[in-house]
Amino acid sequence: MSEPINANPKIISLEDLPTREAASDITSSANSKAAAFPSSALDSVFPISRSSLDEAYAALLLIAEKKDADGDVEMKEEEAPVLSSGESESGSSDDDEDFEDEEPIDEQEIYDLIASISDPEHPLTLGQLAVVNKPDIHITRSSSADSRGRRQRITRVKVEITPTITHCSLATLIGLGIRVRLERCLPPRYRVEINVKKGTHQSESQVNRQLNDKERVAAACENQQLVGVLSGMLATCK
């Protein structure tokens, strides 16, 4: 890790990133986007030192090795938290109707949350590097009952990331940053899954296992060196 992973990545300009605005508003959107997300925002958190990235990478390896040594335990599906206040005898909440009326979060909103995360090596965002792309965000909504017969509304958000090169050793760190960002911003009923897009990384299955193992993620978020690097990556988020 003595040299940059990808010194010359393909860069998408800010005005070409996906937005919700109509085609007729593209020009004004580009201007407002540039004003809302100036390049100085990235300059203020860079460079993240090579030693910090090396230490963060080493910490991720140690966490993975420890978990592999302990043995993987099959994880049970988490139950969505349900508030007890206002719950009726039928097991549903008095707020069910209000919940149904809420406007659901869509793929564009998820993209907006994560596209402005900065890459750990380059003073560019994940959106600009096409590490995250709107077509690679998938949202699935379902309704089920928990062990007490109470209705749960679960929304699953799957994000597929595309590393800039197939041997990118910071893919796990990038995926971790995306997971932390979404789990901080989304309501508790949202379930987040982060995967490397099929065929884009030589250690695809290993990275995916690390990113979707809640014990490994929890251990990573308790590591001071990793938290420092993640904070730098998320400092550019709007």
Rank of each mutant, 00 (worst) to 15 (best):
F46Y: 06
A22D: 11
D54M: 14
S29T: 15
F37I: 01
S39M: 13
A30H: 07
S51G: 04
L42I: 08
S32D: 10
S24N: 06
F37G: 00
F37T: 00
S40I: 12
F37A: 09
L42F: 15
A56R: 01
A36G: 09
A22K: 10
R50D: 10
S29Q: 13
S51M: 09
R20V: 01
P38F: 01
A34M: 13
A22V: 11
A56K: 03
S32L: 14
R50Y: 02
S24F: 05
S24H: 09
D43Q: 11
A35C: 05
S49V: 04
I48R: 01
F37P: 00
A59T: 04
A41K: 11
L42P: 03
D54I: 12
D43E: 12
T19I: 04
E21M: 02
E21G: 03
D25W: 09
E55C: 02
K33C: 02
A22L: 09
S40K: 06
L42D: 04
S24C: 02
A59R: 01
E21R: 05
D43F: 13
R20E: 14
S51N: 14
E21Q: 12
Y57R: 12
I48S: 02
F46L: 10
A34D: 15
V45S: 09
L42Y: 13
N31C: 12
A35R: 06
I26P: 02
I48K: 02
R20W: 01
A36E: 11
S49M: 07
K33P: 00
P38G: 06
A30C: 11
I26R: 11
A36Q: 09
A59N: 04
V45Y: 10
A41W: 07
A58F: 02
E55N: 11
V45F: 15
S24P: 00
P47K: 02
K33V: 12
E55V: 05
E55P: 00
P47A: 03
